[in-house]
Structures are given as structure tokens and as C-alpha cells.
């Protein structure tokens, strides 16, 4: 218990003193604020546009979709990789932390950042709704909203653990971010190529890391009634219906990827010299 307290203290101190952290959180909060303000304005201008809970949960939680994951991956790289290039992680171990504890501190940092991002989105999103003229329903939150929030939180952990893996493997912030950007491009290109090969091959691409994480972050995968309405609209226009893997499968796959990323970064930290 004492060591957890120590890890929280040192990781907090290292993080809050870092300008990059405040810039990233500030930009993230600003983006969410502008979306919230836009929603309230629209609700005031157009009475048909309902911006109230629980209907607006997907809109509130949209702040946690892909860009947030990308933000968190970049932030984790910026906060973790310099521990190697500045050799401060090495000094932490010399001062008495084991490599395993140093790593545990980084996982706690990841968990803390995810909690901070979720709290920021909830605070700004719900805060915006307080200024909206729309009338809400009898309940504030539904079970599907909880599921969506949990899925998006899991998604942030997925991106953060990918960032942690790149930071501990590459040990330099610039190249690690480069690989992250590159991966997005490469996966997109590979998916494009495979999709030309036919439907069976396309099914495989659904399990690719970024694809599966995108699906888990898509409100259509979590809200069946919204999906049904979208598909009805698509049917009217002669388009094929949208399909998603079961939520359980999406959760299991994202969890599996996150575990693999964390395991790789743990082994790298443990086996390599500092």
C-alpha cells in the first residue's frame, strides 16, 4: 500500500510539472467545450434538436471517441519516453524503485490519464446540458449509456497501452509518435488492400486493432435502436445495412489487444537494461 502511495506521488509530481501535460489537457478540454457550446447553441436555435439526458449521452460521450484515444496515446508517449532519453527512469531505479515498480507507476499514470479524460468529458458535456433548454426524460442514464461509457473508457485504455508499449520499446518520444502515426496509415492501407480480396478477407480486417477499437467507440454498435434507424434509412436509399461484431466480442478483442500491449511493454522494461 505504501509503495502505491509513493508511485502516485512521484508520477503526479512528474506529470503536473510538465508543460506538455497541461497543453494536451487544455487543448482536449477546449475541443470538448467548443462541441458542448455548439450543442447548446443548436438546441436553443432549433427546438426540434433535443439536447438533454438521457437522449444526449452519445453526444456527450462523443468527446471520448477516436481523437481522445489518439490524444492519450500521444500524451503517454510524451510523458513516458523521456524517462529513457533523460535517463530519469534509470535514476528512479538507482534511487530504490525496481524496474517493475517503475513500470507499475506508468500503468497507474495511464489509468489516471484515462480517468482525467473521462472526467473532463463528463464535466464539460453535462455542464453544457445544464445550459440547454431541452427537456430530459424521467431517467438520467440508461444501461446502454453505461455500456457505451465503459466501451469508450476501454478504448482509451487501449490507445494508452499502445502508447505505453511504443514509449517503452522505442524509448524516444519523436520516433514513437512517428510509428504511431505510421501504424494508422499502414493499417488503413492494408485494410484497403484486403477488402479488394472479397468478403471473407474483409471479415478478418474487422479484428484489426484500430478497426476494432473504432467499432467499440461507435455509438451504432452500442445503441441497437439507433443502428436500426440508420439501417432503415440506408435501406430506403438502397444501401447495404451496417453490421458490427457483438459488443462482447469487441470488448474481448480490445481487452486482449490492451493486455498484449501492456505485456510487451512490461517484458521490455524488465528484460532490457536501463
Amino acid at each position: 500500500m505504501k509503495i502505491l502511495n509513493v508511485l502516485v506521488r512521484i508520477e503526479t509530481l512528474k506529470t503536473v510539472k510538465r508543460r506538455a501535460f497541461w497543453v494536451a489537457v487544455g487543448v482536449f478540454a477546449a475541443i470538448n467545450t467548443s462541441v458542448a457550446v455548439d450543442n447548446v447553441r443548436t438546441a436553443r436555435r432549433f427546438p426540434d434538436f433535443s439536447h438533454a439526458l438521457p437522449e444526449s449521452w452519445p453526444r456527450v460521450l462523443s468527446g471520448l471517441t477516436s481523437p481522445a484515444g489518439f490524444f492519450i496515446a500521444v500524451l503517454i508517449i510524451l510523458l513516458v519516453a523521456p524517462e529513457f532519453s533523460w535517463r530519469t527512469g534509470r535514476q528512479n531505479v538507482i534511487d530504490g524503485l525496481s524496474k517493475e515498480r517503475l513500470y507499475a507507476g506508468k500503468v497507474m499514470l495511464l489509468a489516471g490519464l484515462v480517468a482525467l479524460f473521462v472526467a473532463t468529458v463528463l464535466l464539460i458535456g453535462i455542464g453544457g446540458i445544464l445550459f440547454s433548454p431541452s427537456e430530459g426524460g424521467p431517467e438520467i442514464i440508461r444501461s446502454t449509456d453505461f455500456s457505451y461509457l465503459a466501451g469508450l473508457t476501454l478504448n482509451l485504455l487501449f490507445f494508452g497501452s499502445a502508447g505505453l508499449m511504443l514509449a517503452t520499446l522505442i524509448r524516444s518520444a519523436g520516433p514513437a509518435m512517428g510509428v504511431l502515426f505510421l501504424y494508422f496509415l499502414v493499417e488503413g492501407a492494408i485494410v484497403g488492400l484486403i477488402e479488394r480480396a472479397g468478403e471473407t478477407a474483409t471479415r478478418i480486417t474487422e479484428y484489426f486493432p484500430v478497426n476494432i477499437s473504432d467499432d467499440l467507440g461507435d455509438d451504432l454498435a452500442l445503441y441497437p435502436e439507433v443502428l436500426a434507424s440508420v439501417n432503415a434509412d440506408r435501406a430506403e436509399r438502397g444501401l447495404a445495412p451496417l453490421e458490427f461484431l457483438d459488443v462482447e466480442v469487441l470488448v474481448a478483442a480490445v481487452l486482449a489487444y490492451s493486455t498484449i500491449f501492456l505485456l510487451i511493454s512490461f517484458l521490455s522494461m524488465r528484460r532490457r537494461d536501463l
Binding site: L13, W86, R87, R90, D95
Partner: peptide, 15 residues
């Protein structure tokens, strides 16, 4: 090896 962006005293606080 210290955190360049932190004050000398804060670096010692980490240690």
C-alpha cells in the same frame, strides 16, 4: 539524471 523541467528541489522531492 534529473527532470530538466523541474526545479532542483522538486527533483529531490521525487528522489
Amino acid at each position: 539524471n534529473f527532470y530538466p523541467y523541474m526545479r532542483g528541489r522538486d527533483n529531490l522531492r521525487v528522489a
